[in-house]
Amino acid sequence: MTTTRIIEIECQRFNPQTDSEPHFQSYQVPFSEEMSVLQGLQYIKDHLDGSLTFRWSCRMAICGSCGSMVNGVPQLSCHTFLRDYFPDKVRIEPLNHFPVLRDLAIDQTDFLAKLESVKPYLIPDTEKTPAQGTYLQTPQQMDEYYQYSECINCLLCYAACPQYGLNKEFTGPAALALLHRYNADSRDAGSAERMEVINGENGVWGCTLVSYCSEVCPKGVDPARAINQNKINSTKDYFLRFLQPRGGK
């Protein structure tokens, strides 16, 4: 079955050299049953308008490059199919809450700085040499962090988060989920260093549990959970420090 139909794709356009505000441009795109929204964009670029700018790489929901707003919902365009929108039109915009560089390409510089701030790498208590063997972990210990390690940094959760939109200082869903991914890892001993980020006004306390981040995550990471269970950890940390001896960490 390779019946070809025509769908209208409406893209947000923005040229930083000539435009002060974006506008929409419509394209009539022939599509078949198995075509993703990303393939629709590629058709436009190849056949209709070579100036359309968008990011993509893997076409299989693992690289996290092709996130965009599809009919107002943050989606990976490779993970979304034109057939599900036909006969209505599809409106594609760059991810919400980020500065737009050009057309559908956004500037993720801010996120990269936040990602770095949470130290997203294992900080072991004592470094082992290969000769000393591997770090052992039980399946249950792995279960504590595994889903949070599935994050592909696609930023759909930031586009879903009004708190990030309202306050750009907020560390945000993916970075805090990755923070928790390392804190929850039995091989890691860096929690104390990351606690400072959690405890700040723009750490977990910037979240109001809208929980749309978890709804739109294409990898089932559930950032809202990572953030909100750390509100309890931050609260414990806040009160328990009064019980600790002076000078203790």
Binding site: N199, E201, K231, D237, Y238, F239
Partner: peptide, 9 residues
Amino acid sequence: MIRRSNKPV
């Protein structure tokens, strides 16, 4: 040093 929030209270 990031200032600790008083939100826990």
